[in-house]
Nucleic acid binder design. Structure first.
Length: 408
RNA sequence: GGAGAGGUAGCGAAGUGGCUAAACGCGGCAGACUGUAAAUCUGUUCCUUCGGGUUCGAUGGUUCGAAUCCAUCUCUCUCCA
């Protein structure tokens, strides 16, 4: 398979700006860039697949530049629904640093910050040197802007496209960067950058977009109960990530394997086969969890997540001793119990349930288990007597959520 | 600057003086069934010491009683100049 064929097979190409790009990807050594704005202090699983694409290109001899948008992050890329709330400069700086550390560690890519070349452009020059290249009707026709015309869009966000175009121009001129890749929502920004480069320099550059990874129902992939699946293990523990991946829908797991791992076509085809013949073994799901977590958090973290999951879901919690439990549950939310406590209070005080009403509802539904025993009475008191080695209680809420209580 | 329409729970959307803690749909959560999958079915979805308390953009007012009426403010959209 050529590089392009592989990307296509993995479902990583949404659209390309011109067909010559296929040839260039397969045979040339391009410098390309992909940008992300520091809207949070960690990458999430969605970024992960995009950056893996950059990695895939790099492995074929292309040179990736990751642009972390210290300038564009201050402006805000228009979302289709509504205006963003601006983040403070302090927040942005914190986010910026967080992303850089992660990208460096996980991928080792070269990084640039568009603040460096955007900060000194003054307003008059901006309008004269760049504004003249953007026709309003062209900008209004871009999908993201169009979708906002009814609900309202400020001049600030409207200008975002221009800023990103300047980035592409800058990287083209200073680094001979001739390709920009991004999520499908970046199409408008990428093409307007190409347009600017064509008008200003007469050169042709390229772009392609990658599809948004979705769940079976078409909604965005990468959200769990606790919100997004982050790559920072303090925000999403390897165990949580394991749970997220292992719970992938059957109909999507092969798609995720293609997009989130480096497994070969042969390996994935075989897993697909297993999935069809023995879905209950969930080999594909396990492979997905293993590949992704090992890449992001390393092998040790993966095995630990696996160990916790097996202990929890095979239902032999009581056979573990104190130390084994503590080892296993490193990564599960933990709380301290100072004295025997009513079950409802315990659930509410430790944020397992958001209110007493909810706690009672869970109990009445049979959704609360302590050390694998179903709790049926609202007025039950949790004491040392029921703790494993008089020390530890494992609280389960619903089928999949676990909490660890330790008697002091 | 002028005229009009609007802001109801996570979202969409009813409700225009008491029967409304607020219909309905989506989403979320839980239970059953399963394979920690999907689909389906069922329950649930402001807080509570179960007396009640606090909610419908904000503040003040009218009323025995307000999401609903009045005033001011604020935000969004549409049109005009």
């Amino acid at each position: 398979m050529t590089l392009f064929e592989e990307l296509k097979w993995r479902g990583l190409i949404e659209s390309v700006t011109n067909v010559e790009i296929i040839e260039k990807l397969n045979n040339d050594k391009l410098t390309f860039y992909i940008g992300t704005d520091p809207t949070a202090d960690s990458l999430h699983i969605g970024h992960f697949s995009s950056l893996l694409v950059a990695k895939r290109l790099e492995q074929h001899g292309h040179h990736p530049i990751i642009l972390v948008g210290g300038a564009t992050g201050l402006i805000g890329d228009p979302r289709p629904t509504k205006e963003r709330t601006m983040i403070t400069k302090e927040e942005l700086e914190k986010n910026y640093n967080g992303l850089c550390v992660q990208i460096k560690k996980l991928f080792g890519f070269e990084m640039v910050n568009n603040y460096d070349w955007s900060k000194d452009i003054n307003f008059i020059d901006y309008l004269r040197d760049y504004g003249k290249f953007f026709n309003i009707s062209y900008m209004l026709n871009k999908e993201t802007v169009k979708s906002r015309l009814d609900g309202g869009i400020t001049y600030t966000e409207f200008s975002y496209m221009i800023m990103q175009s300047l980035d592409f121009l800058h990287l083209f001129e200073s680094r001979n960067c001739t390709l920009q890749i991004g999520g499908q929502d970046q199409w408008g920004n990428i093409t307007s950058g190409m347009e600017l480069i064509r008008k200003k320099t007469g050169h042709e550059v390229y772009g392609f977009t990658m599809p948004l990874i979705t769940k079976a129902d078409g909604t965005k992939f990468g959200k769990s109960e606790g919100g997004a699946i982050w790559l920072d293990k303090n925000k999403t523990s390897p165990y949580e990530m394991f749970q997220f991946l292992i719970n992938s829908e059957d109909s999507k797991v092969i798609d995720y394997l293609k997009k989130l791992t480096f497994l070969s076509k042969e390996e994935i085809d075989e897993l697909d086969n297993d999935l069809n013949n023995h879905p209950e073994l969930r080999k594909s799901h396990k492979a997905l969890a293993k590949e992704v977590i090992t890449f992001i958090h390393g092998q040790d973290a993966y095995y630990e997540a696996l160990k916790i999951s097996e202990a929890l879901f095979n239902g032999n919690i009581k056979q573990l001793n104190e130390q084994e439990l503590l080892d296993c549950f490193n990564g599960v939310p933990t709380f301290i119990i100072n004295e025997p406590l009513n079950i409802v209070d315990l659930l509410v005080n430790n944020d397992i349930c958001s209110s007493k009403r909810e706690a009672k509802e869970f109990i009445n539904n049979g959704a609360i288990l302590i050390n694998d025993d179903k709790i049926i009475l609202e007025d039950m008191v949790v004491s040392e007597d029921m703790a494993i080695e008089k020390k530890i209680v494992v609280v389960r809420k619903g089928k999949k959520k676990y909490y660890l209580g330790i008697f002091n």
